[in-house]
Amino acid sequence: MTLLRDLFSIVAICAGGFFFLAGTVGLLRFPDMLTRLHALTKADNLGLGLIVLGLLPRVGSVLGGVKLVAVWALALLASACVSQVAARMGRLRDEP
């Protein structure tokens, strides 16, 4: 059972790490701002989400798990709103 739990954690955290890596590569290599934002928000949403998912079986208490999920939800909210604002600012700058 512990082995299965550890395996789940390892797979989820590695997958999360992969999305962060892919998001960073996208941020550096994609041609314009909108596609870069797209790459960046994938890192936040999926990368952080998978890492939180992988950590959930390892927290000792329910409250600790709820805090982890809350961290992910807040990051999700902030990244979604901020990327909207950044995209609009960028468009205003490019097409005055």
């Binding site: 807040l74 909210l77 709103c81 901020v82 609009r88």
Partner: peptide, 16 residues
Amino acid sequence: DRDGALTFLAQFLPPV
């Protein structure tokens, strides 16, 4: 900056 997304964030986040 009166942007819809920012207004939403500024209404939702401060109570938290």
